[in-house]
């Protein structure tokens, strides 16, 4: 990429069933680097961009944070949904 062209970081939060990148995605949250952009919960059935984290990686997303599987663990209680992967794409945004 030419260095004088502004590039921006697109972010994708994917919550997967397990820490395995091939496990099914339970939640997604795409954040575009555009002023005024807001995420939106869809009343209509949303389009799921990927079924797994691996699908997103194949499409060019790079994982920048993996879930912390060694965090404190309780085998009787439940907390958040799934395991959070954070991915990025550095792209020219017009």
């Amino acid at each position: 990429m030419p260095s004088n062209v502004p590039h921006r970081q697109r972010l994708l939060y994917l919550h997967a069933t397990t820490p395995n990148v091939f496990s099914k995605i339970l939640a997604y949250n795409l954040i575009e680097p555009v002023t005024g952009f807001r995420t939106e919960i869809k009343a209509e059935t949303p389009d799921w961009p990927y079924d797994t984290v691996h699908d997103a990686v194949v499409d060019g997303w790079q994982v920048i944070q993996f879930p912390h599987s060694q965090a404190p663990f309780d085998d009787k209680d439940l907390d958040v949904i799934g395991y959070e992967f954070i991915l990025q794409k550095i792209e020219i945004i017009q």
Binding site: Y13, H15, I25, L26, A27, Y28, N29, L30, T39, E40, I41, K42, A43, P46, W48, D77, L78, D79, V80, I81, E84
Partner: peptide, 23 residues
């Protein structure tokens, strides 16, 4: 909007902040 099956999760609101659309 509701997410059926989340009511027994010990997850305060701050920990929901990175979720938007949930299966």
């Amino acid at each position: 909007m509701i997410v059926p099956g989340t009511h027994f999760r010990n997850a305060p609101t701050d920990r929901m902040a990175t979720y938007t659309n949930i299966r």
